[in-house]
Nucleic acid binder design. Structure first.
Lengths: 202, 202
DNA sequence: ACCTGAACACCGTTCAAGT
DNA sequence: ACCTGAACACCGTTCAAGT
C-alpha cells in the first residue's frame, strides 16, 4: 500500500530558498529543510540527489525569477514610455537598477547564481541565456551585432561584480554606493554606444 | 618545561592556502591543515580562533599578494616604458590584465577575497585600500579627482565580476573570453576618460 | 606553554525495516 | 512507493591530562 506523498520537489526547493535567505548557506542543512516541509531528512533523498543538487535547483529557480524581473522591466519601463523603439541607453540603466533591486531582495540566492562555490551543481544551460536575452538585444542595439556578446558580458560582469562586492561589504572607503552604481551604468552605456565597429547599426 | 613550537601561524596560513587551491574550500578542513603542518587538529586552536578566522587570514594574505602584483605592474609596465607620465588608459588595461592573471593563478584565493561566504571573517580594513591605491591614482587621473572613487569602483566591479563569472564557468555562450576582457577594459578606459566633471584635470 | 586523545554536538548520506 | 530510525563517516571545537 503506497503512502500518500507528504511533500514535493517544489516544496523542498521553496523551503530551501527561504532558509537560505534567512539563515545563510551554512544554515541550509538537510535537517532544516526536512523540518520545514514536515518530513525527516532521509526522505529528501527521494526527490533530490544530494545537498549540492538541491543548491543547484535553488540557483536555477532564483535565476528564472531574476530573468522574469528583467523581462518585466523591459516591458513596463522604457518600451512602454516611448513606444516601439525605446532608447537603449535608458533601457540599460533601468535593467541595471532592476538587477540590483533583485539582488538586494534575494542576496543569498543572488550569491548562489553569480559566485557559486565548487559544491553547487551548475544550473541548466538554457536558463542564463534566457535570463539575459533582453540584455543581449539591448547590447546589440548599443554596440552593434558584432560586439553584442562582448558588450553584454561587460555589462553583466560589472553589475554582478558591483553587487557582489556591495553585498560582501567590500565598499568600505565611504562614498555613496547608489551614486557609484548610477555612475557606472551611465558610463558603461555611453562607452558601449560609442563602440567602434566595422558594421555599426544606425 | 615548555614544549618547543612544532609549527607557526605563517606555516598554518600557507598550508591553508595550498590546500585551498588544491582541494577547494570543502577540502580545507582543520584536520587537513594540521596534517600538513605536522600537528593534530586541536593544536591549531593555539594560533587560530576558528576555521572562519583562518579563512580570513588566508584572504588577507592573498589580498596582500594581489596588491603587490598590481604594484609591480605599475612599476615595471607603463611607467617604465614611457617615463614619468605614463598613459593612464594603457595603465588601466595592464592593471586589468595583471588582475586576471593573478586570479587565474589563485582562483580559490581570489574567490575568497571577492565573493566570500558569510562564514569568512572579513580581512583587515587597510589592506584592500592599499591593494587598490594604485588603481585609485589612475582612476583619478582618468576621471578627475571628483569621480575617482566611483571610477575605481566601476573598474574593480567589472574586473572582479568578469573573472568571478569566468571562474564559475558562467560564460557558456561561446565566443572568445580573452577578447571580451580586452573589449571591456578598453571600453571602460575610454568611458572613464570621457567622464564629464566640474573640475577635470588637464 | 604547547601538544594530544577523548569526547561532544552536528553534519550528509545510506539502508533495512516499516506502512 | 514513500517514510523512518539507526547507523556510518566525517566535520569543528573543547578540555583535561600529559610533557
Amino acid at each position: 500500500m503506497p503512502t500518500p506523498d507528504r511533500t514535493s520537489l517544489d516544496d523542498i526547493v521553496q523551503a530551501g530558498r527561504d532558509i537560505l535567505e534567512t539563515d545563510g548557506l551554512s544554515g541550509l542543512t538537510m535537517q532544516a529543510v526536512a523540518n520545514r516541509v514536515g518530513v525527516r531528512a532521509p526522505s529528501l533523498y527521494k526527490r533530490v540527489r544530494s545537498r549540492s543538487d538541491l543548491l543547484g535547483l535553488i540557483a536555477e529557480a532564483t535565476a528564472r525569477e531574476l530573468g522574469e524581473s528583467l523581462e518585466a522591466v523591459a516591458r513596463d519601463g522604457a518600451v512602454h514610455r516611448s513606444g516601439a523603439h525605446p532608447d537603449p541607453r535608458r533601457e540599460i540603466i533601468e535593467l541595471a537598477r532592476a538587477f540590483r533591486v533583485f539582488a538586494h531582495a534575494h542576496p543569498a540566492g543572488f550569491h548562489l547564481i553569480f559566485a557559486p562555490g565548487p559544491d553547487v551543481t551548475n544550473p541548466d544551460l538554457g536558463l542564463l541565456a534566457q535570463a539575459s536575452s533582453r540584455l543581449m538585444r539591448v547590447a546589440a542595439e548599443l554596440a552593434g551585432t558584432d560586439n553584442a556578446l562582448d558588450a553584454a558580458r561587460t555589462l553583466t560582469a560589472w553589475a554582478s561584480g558591483f553587487v557582489s562586492m556591495e553585498l560582501a561589504g567590500a565598499f568600505r572607503l565611504g562614498g555613496d554606493i547608489d551614486r557609484a552604481y548610477e555612475f557606472g551604468s551611465a558610463r558603461l552605456a555611453d562607452a558601449l554606444a560609442a563602440t567602434p565597429s566595422p558594421r555599426r547599426r544606425r
